[in-house]
Design a protein around this nucleic acid. Structure first.
Length: 575
RNA sequence: CGGAGUGUGGCGCAGUUGGUAGCGCGCAGCGUUCGGGACGCUGAGGUCGGCGGUUCAAGUCCGCCCACUCCGACCA
């Protein structure tokens, strides 16, 4: 490809103050261009890289036995209604109508479509297991696009859906896990595999592949000793016993003139923070229930865990007014002890969710549902009965992992994930069944597996760039080598043009992908662009090199070049 | 969706108390240059986000929309 003919330009100035390097570099180097927020033109250079990533993903998916196909982008809305995903929160569906009023969702993920396709074939156990996948445009009505390609509203995703029996599933899940590990390794991305929340996708467990990066939006924990890794939302940790050897004392109500913070309680009673109860009141708009989360004072409530155990969908903090008027309590003094079980005015039920850390402390203290009154020696079961008891605690860096090591906090870009879906979709959708060897109808056991191609591309740039520009790993670079021709407009160096043209033709014939900078531009601009574009190798042909009969070959990441004859250069690059 | 902010040639910006729309980069032409983003001259390019209002007069003041950026709650 000749630079003079390449559509898309680099720019010297950085323009706006881009916060994310990959965002700035991809725009500056002419790989992408923004259309509207979160929607990008993929320019010829960008598409080349995108295609190379797809090729690698496809090769590994095929090797793992998955089969590629393509599904429609417009999904009949009725399918999404079957699984109630038109109403559950998560991403908002983009809806569209045709001229007859038929309703469609712009596909954001395709579990329903996959099930709908498979059930059309009325399969038997002999057909299982199988795994189908596609590369297709996904639409997400994201609240806020961010960081260039890191979070967008339209993107190509590789999404795979496996169908199997429950017994076969484990192996498929492991196969995908292995395939992903190999994919990201080949793409030059170091990823951590972390347990995560299934969210609106459904199912019981899933793992994210996270490329460590400061620009990432995922916060997660790793125990490097044991390899335990988990997203902040689901991370579990070892809870230490506190004073469980202390004898239980009778409940006592005392005057407590204090503010609303935990610290003020600690000061007033001169007791440790961990002995205090932390009572956080939420309201779930989806199910119209108050949810009181009770936890040990030195821990925080993990809302994702809370939502899961309480089966809540749309949690918000309760207002002071609700606390006072509806629940007859007092902000800062809320307590599960003698808590009303129903809103006085609203009639909405109150669900008490207790964290299991409450079992590690005796004689706790906290509010008494009255202004400036506290309770001492609160004891679970005796003084209050939780409706649900579970792990709802938020892990913090430095805590002990369940395997014993220390939890290390990291940030990263979620480039892929694998989900166990189990019977989630086949329970919700009719006829999602196969016939087993006894002739009985059985539900499909499913999994799904996604990789965001554009986000992966951006994550690679995040991991591979320097102050001069992008440094593409060789296997996904848009071109292997950039052939820079210098001094082309000087009348007395005509030999340069023919030497460069000749080398370009021979390299191309040898199967080496070349970006030939034949532009009528000054050397500085050409060098700067070659660096910015991140092409792994650079050849310089100039008056000097033509006279010497040896041109310069240099790697993008190295400072020094080699002087080699044309034949040697071709040999070196052909490999 | 909550908070903050910005909309003026392709990009980045300036525009005073309302009174002829400017600068830098980029682009086109000519000339001089040519190993790390040169310089001179000439030129093209703008319904000032949209609609409405105030005014003799609106980029500037008022109102309502729209779009975008950043920070938070969500995801490949």
């Amino acid at each position: 490809m000749r630079s003079s003919q390449l559509f898309g330009k680099t720019s010297k100035t950085e323009g706006r103050d881009y916060k994310v390097s990959s965002h700035r570099l991809l725009i500056q180097a002419g790989f992408i261009r923004e259309s509207t927020a979160g929607r990008y033109y993929l320019l010829p250079l960008g598409l080349k890289v995108h295609d190379r990533i797809i090729k690698i993903v496809r090769r590994h998916m095929d090797a793992a036995g998955a089969q590629e196909l393509v599904m429609p982008v417009l999904h009949p809305l009725d399918l999404w209604k079957e699984t109630n995903r038109t109403t559950t929160t998560g991403f908002e569906l983009m809806k569209i109508e045709d001229r007859r009023g038929a309703e469609f969702a712009l596909g954001g993920t395709a579990e329903e479509m996959a099930v709908d396709l498979v059930r059309k074939f009325n399969i038997s156990y002999k057909d299982l297991p199988f795994n189908i996948y596609q590369f297709s445009m996904k639409f997400r009505d994201e609240m806020r696009a961010r960081g260039g390609l890191l979070r967008v509203r339209e993107f190509v995703m590789k999404d795979a859906y496996s169908f199997s029996t429950e017994g076969q599933f484990k192996e498929i899940y492991q196969q995908m896990r292995d395939a992903y590990t190999a994919i990201f390794e080949e793409l030059g991305l170091k990823t951590d595999i972390v347990a995560a929340d299934n969210g609106y996708i459904g199912g019981e467990y899933c793992h994210e592949f996270v490329a460590e990066s400061q620009e990432g939006e995922s916060r997660y924990f790793i125990d490097e000793k044991s390899g335990y890794g988990a997203h902040e939302d689901v991370a579990v940790f070892h809870i230490d016993e506190k004073n469980t050897d202390e004898p239980l004392k009778p409940l006592e109500e005392v005057e407590a003139v204090r503010g609303k913070t935990m610290e003020e309680g600690v000061k007033l009673h001169n007791l440790p923070l961990w002995q205090q109860t932390k009572d956080v009141l939420f309201f779930d708009e989806a199910t119209k229930r108050y949810i009181l989360a009770v936890i040990r004072g030195d821990f925080d409530v993990n809302e994702t865990k809370l939502m899961q155990v309480a089966d809540a969908w749309d949690l918000r903090a309760a207002t002071d007014q609700e606390v006072i008027e509806d629940l007859v309590s007092m902000p800062g003094f809320i307590s599960p002890v003698k808590m009303v079980k129903k809103g006085k005015k609203s009639g909405y039920p109150v669900v008490i969710v207790a964290d299991k850390s409450l079992r590690t402390v005796h004689n706790m203290y906290g509010g008494a549902n009255k202004k400036h009154q506290d309770l001492l020696n609160i004891t679970i079961d005796r003084d209050y009965q939780p409706d649900i008891e579970a792990d709802i605690a938020l892990a913090q860096p430095g805590m002990k992992s369940p395997e014993g090591g220390e939890l290390l906090e990291k940030r990263g870009i979620e480039v892929g994930n694998i989900f166990q879906l189990g019977y989630h979709y086949s329970n919700l959708m009719h006829d999602a069944e196969y016939t087993d060897d006894q002739g009985r109808r059985q539900k499909y056991y499913m999994g799904c597996y996604g990789i965001g191609i554009g986000r992966t591309l951006a994550a690679i740039v995040e991991a591979h760039h320097d102050d001069k520009g992008i440094v593409w790993p060789e296997n996904i670079a848009p071109y292997k080598v950039c052939l820079v021709r210098l001094g082309d407009t000087i009348g007395n160096t005509k030999g340069v043009v023919s030497a460069a043209d000749d080398l370009y033709n021979r390299l191309t014939e040898a199967g080496v992908s070349v970006l030939y900078d034949d532009r009528d531009a000054r050397p500085g601009e050409k060098f700067a662009d070659a660096d910015l574009l991140g092409i792994p190798y650079r050849i310089v042909v100039s008056e000097k090199t033509v006279q010497a009969g040896k041109h310069e070959l240099k790697k993008r990441i190295e400072a020094d070049h080699q002087s080699l004859g044309a034949e040697e250069i071709i040999k070196a690059l052909r490999a």
